[in-house]
Amino acid sequence: MLTVLVVDDSALMRRRIADLLGEAGFRVETAATGEEALARLPVVDPDVVTLDITMPGMDGLTCLARIMVEHPKPVVMVSALTGAGAEETLEALRLGAVEAVQKPAAGSIGRIGEELVETVRAAASSRPRRVRGLRERLRLARARIAGEDFVSSEALQPAVSAAGVAVGGEGEGVVLVGVSTGGPSTLEDILPLLPAGFPWPVVVAQHMPVAFTATLARRLDELCALRVVEVERATVLEPGMICIARGGADVELARRGGRLQAVSVPASPDRPWHPNADRLVTSALRLLPPERLVGVLLTGMGNDGAVSMTELHARGGRTVAESEDSAVVFGMPQELIRRGGANIVLPSDRIAGQLTRWLMPAPRRAGIG
């Protein structure tokens, strides 16, 4: 039986979460403060910790940072998921929390309770990350990009169209990224390493509520050489930009006035995850030849993106799956690999280098790293 340590200063919330998880078959222990949680961790040795962000005394972020250093465990942050708390929640995810979920309110819990249970269950099989400082992470990743040893001989070959014509990075093309649980910190392993001259725009479908994607885009914009924007409205795709799909909706590619755009569209009720990666890739395949697309499937529970990226691969496009070595939750990339849809499998800190080598001719890469 899996054990969960529930940390919240509210006795009512501790009881509500404990009841939800207990009914789902978990063994539940509780702590009322961050200090109590740290003292109980080595005794309880839980499989997962749920942690409130806002607590008196030691707050959730301080407690999380100490957990990840002293006794790393999968941690699910439980918060109000409001715009006001977006910065704190994203900082928690950057510090190594697996996911953030909404606090179950009084009365009918419904889908919020189901999401909490599903997330805790997925977190139990996740890989907690001992997070170094971001500057050190970027330094080490850049050092790896400077080397060629991790690139397979197949990967170094240029893509070839159905007509037998080699395809490089020049001209219209898009990199499509699907990511879920563990995504914010994983995106920080990849996107800041793309150089300023990167020739294709990047569109990211990160499963996330609407309150958080604008903050995520702003944070990444501060870290990246490329311009990072949230897709609030129809956004013309240009080289040197990264588009983060608006949370709580889906994103599709469209052509308007002859120009390729990323467009935020209402979330499809037929798909369980949003912004939806399969919907993004499928829309791109309607507009561009497969050889002008690169699909990247990263950490996350479930299988979103696996079907469409397998089709992209079968039709001659290039795809990357994150390896189990770095994935917080291996579900999504594992499904792409299982279906035979991945050209190459790499840890997150080597993906930017692979994309750069695929899309930028050697002379333009000179000095990168």
Rank of each mutant, 00 (worst) to 15 (best):
L312S: 00
L297V: 07
S348D: 03
P333S: 09
G317I: 05
L346E: 06
E322G: 01
R315G: 07
A314E: 10
L312D: 00
I344A: 12
A314V: 13
A352K: 11
E324S: 15
Q334N: 14
V294Y: 08
E335L: 06
L312E: 01
D349S: 12
A327T: 01
M301N: 03
L297K: 03
M309A: 12
T299R: 03
L293V: 08
A306T: 06
D304E: 00
A314I: 07
D325F: 15
S326E: 00
V345P: 03
G305Y: 06
V328K: 08
G331Q: 10
M309H: 13
T310M: 07
G316Y: 14
P333G: 09
S308V: 02
D325K: 15
S323T: 04
P347N: 13
Q334V: 04
L297G: 00
R350H: 15
R315C: 02
G302W: 05
L293T: 05
L336P: 01
L336Q: 06
M309N: 12
R315D: 06
V328C: 11
H313P: 06
V329D: 05
T310H: 11
R318M: 13
A352P: 02
V329N: 08
L297P: 02
R339F: 04
G302L: 03
R339Y: 03
D349Y: 07
S348E: 00
L298H: 00
V328N: 11
D349I: 01
